[in-house]
Design a protein around this nucleic acid. Structure first.
Length: 622
DNA sequence: AAGGCATAG
DNA sequence: CCTTCTATGCCTT
């Protein structure tokens, strides 16, 4: 049992955390810069999910009811934000932009608006290069091959803000290499931060430290656009606690990443229980006022006690030790490697009332259409890599539209899932309604979902009647009266895909799948009962006769969809590309479109962006 | 494997 | 306490 052991600090890494300022609002402002001077909020259903700075000045904030927002600020402009595709696209472009600076590709997105970047390799490389006799005139090398790529900087100071704010150089030992590496990290961060704003037009807050935990928390100190570096010494010296403990101690426990409000509440319960001075007047507020220090220094506190307080159903093993590490500013989790395809894709909508099968079918149809479009955007790629499809001069299709001639699947999701959330029964006794649970049923992915020659509408309709409605009936056998507040359709369990371009397995699998589709068609012409393989990776040994179905869920109707085979003409003309929703084709006269990478940006950003492409002789972001 | 919970933005 | 629309990972069965 190591549940009672805490980890040691390991400060060999340098990690930068970026947090874009009010991201959804920033996307709208990038689209239409004139919005910057008007207060607006982004609405999903009856909620303002975020708002711009002008609106915040007037007292609006995130997750506010639209009605409340209008009361406080009647002139507020409301923009619809239920369709996330725009935000997802921009998030990916910014991620690619940031990745273009990295040597290791150790970059991790958290939600749409945060990125962790492990720059240990770049920092260590440059730490070897600096002239300790003349730190003020340093040059940060951003390429291992070309020593002219980089920027001049002053390595004798940290760029941006620091914690603690008052620097006292005398406290830091002369030989502290961590200080130098943090300085280098701060200047690299500062450079990227500036480029992100100048070239892409997005403002961010940035934190620099040695872990995801510390860099993310550091970045909160000077929002919305500041850089903050957590200074050494990180380990206690003599009688001083060290800056990590000082830094962590000030935060409310609930604000520490990976300490949820739920855990914070349990901790608070524990502390107020043994507090002799009637602290229990705090009836139902959040984690307010309970700081890391309060918890860390409370009697008997440690991994063992935390385990006892927090363990339970649904809680990972070893919570106590993990929590204790977090309270002490220790987080050795790696920055995740970039993933090429998501683990799952899901589409959901919420409803005021959903009670009739007819409505359910209608809504399932909408969800299915969105899902299929998303699968085609996020799970496919251009087929030709050797092909010289050299620049036809009108090659300015927005990068998110997969309208190129040939597409292949990067990944094949193996399972389909339908989830619903019944509205909590309006209970007479007040207290017991703490369910907001979702329930779900899943089934094998029907193979026609991977047919790229059929239209989205055709496939969606078949999916609804053959698969989603049966799943729905499994969830809700009663014929009506389910009061659903939400439905979600997901595809998951992606097979392989395997990251980098050297690995051609995705391509091979795609070819196998196409071959399989073809043979399937002829088999299906007479044989209704032969399913395609569930696992494309096994296709090489494929003999349709021996494939067996483990479930009949995907196999519903007698009228199998006409699997018109891969005629290019059918794809191009019958195309789902004509099916594009108009929102993405929208353009504003205030925007420039980069012909090199497809980035959309405000006019002022365009020249700098072009210079970026010219100056960058390493791998292009796109 | 299926289904639910927890956590995050 | 929740509200929106997702995504990920772990737990139990």
């Amino acid at each position: 049992m190591d549940s009672g052991r805490s980890s040691k600090r390991r400060d060999h890494r340098i990690i930068i955390h970026f947090d874009y300022q009010s991201f959804y609002a920033a996307v709208f402002e990038a689209e239409d810069p004139s919005l910057k001077t008007v207060p607006f909020g982004v609405q999903q259903k009856q909620i303002i999910v975020t708002c711009n700075y002008e609106a915040r000045k007037r007292g609006l904030h995130k997750l506010q009811l639209v009605r409340d927002a209008k009361k406080i600020c009647p002139e507020v402009v409301i923009l619809l934000g239920e369709d996330l595709s725009k935000f997802r696209d921009v998030s990916k472009r910014l991620y690619s932009f940031l990745r273009s600076f990295s040597w290791s590709n150790k970059l991790e997105r958290l939600g749409f608006d945060e990125v962790f970047m492990d720059v240990t390799d770049m920092v260590d490389y440059n730490a070897e290069l600096v002239n300790h006799r003349d730190l003020s005139n340093s040059f940060f090398c951003m390429s291992r091959d070309d020593p002219t790529v980089g920027f001049p900087f002053d390595a004798s100071h940290v760029a941006g803000h620091t914690y603690p704010g008052h620097r006292n150089g005398a406290q830091i030992p002369e030989s502290d290499t961590l200080l130098l590496r943090l300085r280098l990290g701060s200047h690299l961060a500062s450079h990227i931060h500036a480029q992100l704003e100048e070239q892409m037009g997005y403002v961010s807050a940035v934190g620099i430290s040695t872990s995801k935990l510390l860099s993310k928390l550091a970045g909160t100190m000077h929002k919305p656009r500041g850089l903050t570096t957590l200074l050494p010494p990180y380990v206690p010296q003599d009688d001083e606690p060290g800056n990590v403990i000082l830094f962590m101690d000030q935060f409310d426990v609930g604000k520490v990443p990976n300490i949820s409000s739920r855990m914070a509440r349990k901790l608070q319960d524990h502390l107020s229980q043994r507090s002799p001075h009637g602290d229990q007047e705090r009836t139902y507020q959040g984690p307010k006022g309970l700081t890391v220090r309060d918890v860390r220094t409370s009697p008997g506190m440690g991994p063992i006690l935390l385990d006892r307080l927090l363990s339970g159903p649904g809680v990972p093993h070893g919570v106590g030790a993990k929590l204790w590490d977090l309270l002490n500013g220790i987080d050795n989790t790696e920055v995740g490697q970039a993933r090429d395809v998501p683990r799952q894709i899901s589409i959901e909508d919420s409803y005021g009332r959903l009670d009739k099968l007819e409505d359910v079918q209608l809504e399932l149809g909408k969800l299915a259409r969105s899902l299929i479009k998303r699968m085609r955007i996020d799970l496919t790629d251009d087929d030709d890599d050797a092909d010289e499809k050299a620049e036809k001069e009108d090659e300015r299709c927005p990068s998110n539209l997969p309208n190129a001639g040939t597409r292949r699947w990067l990944a094949y999701p193996k399972t389909l899932r339908l989830s619903t959330r019944p509205r909590p029964p309006a209970n007479s006794d007040a207290s017991r309604s703490y369910n907001h649970g979702r329930i779900s049923r899943s089934a094998p992915m029907p193979p026609f979902m991977h047919n790229l020659t059929e239209s989205v509408d055709t496939i969606a309709e078949k999916l609804v009647t053959d698969n989603l409605v049966p799943l729905f009936r499994r969830l809700h056998p009663k014929k009506d009266g389910w009061n659903l507040s939400l439905m979600n359709v997901a595809v998951t369990d992606m097979t392989e895909g395997a990251g980098d371009s050297k690995n051609a397995s995705g391509r091979d699998i795609g070819k196998m799948f196409k071959a399989q589709e073809h043979s399937l068609k002829s088999w299906n012409a007479g044989e209704q009962d032969v399913p395609p393989p569930q696992n494309p990776g096994d296709m090489e040994i494929l003999d349709p006769v021996v494939q067996r179905s483990t479930s009949s869920d995907w196999q519903g109707s007698e009228d199998t969809m006409p699997l018109s085979q891969s005629s290019q003409a059918s794809y191009i003309h019958g195309g789902w590309e004509s099916e594009e929703d108009g929102d993405d084709g929208r353009y504003s006269s205030e925007l420039s479109l980069c012909t090199l990478c497809g980035a959309r940006m405000p006019d002022f950003a365009y020249p700098a962006h072009q210079r970026f492409h010219e100056a960058d002789d390493r791998g292009k972001p796109f």
